Simulated scan of single mutants.
Amino acid sequence: MEEAVMLLSESLQRQVNMLSITERNQIEEIRIRIHRPLEVVINGKPYYPDIQTVVQYEEVNRFLNKVSKYSLYTLEEELRRGFITIKGGHRVGIAGKVITEGGVVKAVRDVTSFNIRIAREKIGVASRLIPYLYDGRWKNTLLIGPPKSGKTTILRDLARLISTGDDRNRIKALNVGIVDERSEIAGCVNGVPQHTFGIRLDVLDGCPKAEGMMMMIRSMSPQVLIVDEIGRHEDVEAILDAMHTGIHIIVTAHGFDINDVKSRPNFEALFSNGVFDRYIELSARNGAGTIETVRNKNEQVCKRVLEVTT
């Protein structure tokens, strides 16, 4: 988190440091808004270290300059997408005046708000899923959960585990391909992953999922394909194509449970074709990463249901 805090003005840094060490270690987001007090989100709840002091324009401008290393031109594409990934894998979301051209976002000007989402690795959090997801091969898996339920954290650790291997469980390291459209799984900066993975890993950063899956298959021959937050018809078509090549697929989707996902027309083909061997339903009931249910290919609840906290 220190990489993100160091980009703040001295005044805002002092406010963050007003929190206890325990509170700082649990920060999920730092929100900066012009003429509003600094907001820190801890365990889903907003806190205002100094509610009487508001963020000044100069502080916002200085923060943007630091993030861009005083060259906004080099971040034109990231600004157009609405977020910037910084050292440490933290993602900085932005809001402000949007410039469109032909109905398509061309740029974001006059940035007035930032949302720094703190990326934290939870190495080993996916290990308890090995008995459910591996039996000599990695099973095609769909992780389902609402926002902030730990989907990406578990997916990231699965990518680490698969690309590293696990001698204790006699699991060999495999070539893993990550299509990271929002730079959240690997947290790449200048194409280099900021999180911990094994040596057998390739990342397509900032690439649309459907196109990226096909590019990865054609160019890098992954044995396991990792993708976050599928949902479009094009994503489903790409997954079906990947399945026919023999590649193992582990993906996530927004939803409260399997029935929520099945109700969406775009997902119908995945269920009718029996793409997934395992469905993992997540929630934040006992903290992000709570595993509510593990289901098999027939959508039946497996004998063991476990809960882990990321």
Rank of each mutant, 00 (worst) to 15 (best):
N65V: 00
G231K: 02
E229R: 10
G145E: 12
I230L: 07
V98K: 03
I30G: 09
R278C: 08
E184A: 01
V176Y: 04
S183L: 14
T245P: 11
V261K: 04
G96K: 11
L240H: 01
N286W: 05
K69W: 00
N298Q: 14
E29G: 09
R156L: 04
V179I: 12
E121M: 10
G287L: 03
F63Q: 05
S71Q: 13
I84N: 11
E10F: 08
H195V: 01
V55T: 15
I199H: 11
P49F: 07
V125S: 10
A238S: 14
N175V: 01
K66R: 15
I51P: 10
I178Y: 01
D167M: 11
T141K: 10
E23D: 15
I27P: 04
G102P: 09
L201R: 00
V60K: 10
A210T: 07
P49K: 01
T112Y: 08
Y48C: 08
I84R: 05
I99W: 01
D241M: 14
K297Y: 02
E307C: 13
V308S: 03
V192T: 13
V55N: 03
K148S: 15
S9L: 13
I217M: 14
P49G: 09
S9K: 09
E29S: 06
P146G: 12
S20N: 04
L129P: 06
M215P: 01
L8D: 01
P208A: 11
V54W: 02
V294G: 04
K148P: 00
R81Y: 12
M243C: 02
I185V: 15
L161E: 06
S9R: 08
K45N: 09
R232K: 15
N266L: 00
G231V: 04
R33E: 10
A288F: 02
F83H: 15
E237C: 03
V40S: 09
H90N: 15
I116F: 14
E281G: 01
H90R: 05
N190P: 00
E101A: 11
V203M: 04
R168M: 09
I154W: 00
I32R: 01
V179L: 07
Y279T: 00
C207E: 13
V189H: 03
N273M: 11
F114A: 03
G102I: 07
V92E: 10
A186T: 08
T252L: 07
S219N: 14
Y47S: 14
I178S: 05
K87T: 09
L240A: 05
T196H: 08
A210P: 02
A126G: 02
T53H: 11
Y73G: 07
I230W: 12
